[in-house]
Simulated assay, not measured.
Amino acid sequence: MKKLLLGSMMAMLVATGVGCSTEDTSGETPEETGNGETITFGVTPWTSTVPPTKIASLILQDMGYEVVETSADVGNVFMGLSRGDLDVFMDAWFPMHQVHMERFSDTVVDTAVSYPEAETGWVVPNYMEDINSVEDIVGNEDLFNNEMYGIEEGTSSQEETNEMIEALGLDITQVNSSEGGMLAQAQRLMQQEEPVIFFGWRPHTMFNKYDIKVIGNDAGFFETSSVHVITNHELQEKAPDAFEFLSNWNISIDDVEEMIVQIEEEDQDPEEAAREWIDNNQDKVNEMLGN
């Protein structure tokens, strides 16, 4: 939830799984209309991407489709969608990813809102009672060793963070790494109750694990996001019933966060967590399927 070489994307891990149909509450199974057609999902290395991808993947498999998941960074996901190498991305964040939508506007389609009002921005521990906005950091950068921790380079969040640093004249350097690396560094400092700034977003288990807060700013950076489903522009013709299902897609941010906890903290298999969600939300699934 953030240079572009298609070759690097295609060299990344591809995982394919085929699931079995699950009965809905009326005892009926989804009509199999996929006829073995393959639908390829782009999967970014963010915890928020997994739950909606796994749920949608299993439902499409129940409809008779083959499903492939291709791991890539967000820039390569959008490029893959544009080139037709990928069909679906379940975790596009707006307005952060608007730059990618504008770049590939002729070949990608904003298909559905997965969930609105996902909070994102700079995060500090709640024990830092005097730091409640980015403006509170001005003049106090040395408290943080003049560093804030962000996710991998090339993301929209990295760019927006650097823009905010420049706009506010902060004497801060962004240190980028993987999501796991960023959180490991933040956790190390929080265990010692040291000052730390890092990038955060919901849905994420960090808000279940740590006593933290997203700090605002008066400059309009890191607006509350909405998370969208993005598809290749040819999917509607290639698989109209799949496109219709994805057009009706929505899920609550609380459900996504609960699944992240099940997967990340309780070591539940992602597909098992997704199947459990489907079984517990069959009315919602039927609605998305147009039944």
Rank of each mutant, 00 (worst) to 15 (best):
T40W: 00
S26I: 02
I55D: 08
L58G: 06
S48F: 12
F41R: 10
V43N: 03
E37S: 08
E28R: 15
P52Q: 11
F41L: 07
T33M: 07
P30A: 05
I59V: 15
I59E: 04
S57K: 10
T33F: 11
T53M: 15
N35H: 12
D62F: 11
P52R: 11
T53G: 08
T53R: 15
G42I: 05
F41W: 11
Q61S: 12
E28L: 13
G27F: 02
M63P: 06
G36D: 05
P45F: 15
L60M: 15
V43E: 02
V50D: 00
N35D: 11
N35T: 01
I39R: 12
P51R: 05
G34C: 08
E37Q: 14
T25P: 02
I55T: 08
P30T: 01
P45D: 13
P51F: 05
G34T: 03
E28G: 01
Q61E: 13
T53Y: 13
P51N: 00
N35Q: 13
I55P: 14
W46Q: 06
I55E: 09
P51M: 03
S48R: 04
M63E: 05
F41C: 04
L58H: 14
V43K: 03
P51E: 00
E37H: 08
D62S: 08
E32T: 02
G36W: 01
G34L: 12
T38E: 14
K54E: 11
V43G: 00
T40H: 01
F41K: 10
T38I: 06
L58K: 15
P30F: 13
T47A: 10
T53V: 10
S57A: 09
P30E: 10
E32S: 09
T38L: 15
T33K: 12
W46L: 05
G27H: 03
M63N: 05
I39S: 08
P30I: 03
T44L: 07
K54M: 13
T44M: 11
P51Y: 05
G36V: 04
E32Y: 03
V43C: 02
D62M: 13
G42Q: 11
D62Q: 14
Q61G: 07
E32K: 15
L60N: 10
P51C: 00
V43T: 01
T40V: 07
I59F: 06
T29K: 14
S57Y: 04
T47R: 13
E32M: 13
F41A: 03
W46D: 06
P51L: 03
G34R: 14
G27D: 03
V50E: 00
G36L: 13
I55Y: 14
G42V: 06
S26L: 13
W46I: 03
T29R: 13
G34K: 14
Q61T: 07
T47S: 10
F41E: 05
W46F: 11
S26A: 08
N35C: 03
E32P: 04
T25N: 13
S26H: 09
W46G: 00
I59Q: 06
M63F: 06
T44Q: 07
S48Q: 02
V50F: 07
T33Q: 06
T49L: 04
N35K: 15
G36Q: 11
L58P: 01
L58V: 04
E37G: 01
S57L: 05
D62V: 02
W46V: 05
T33Y: 12
T40Q: 00
T44C: 10
G36E: 07
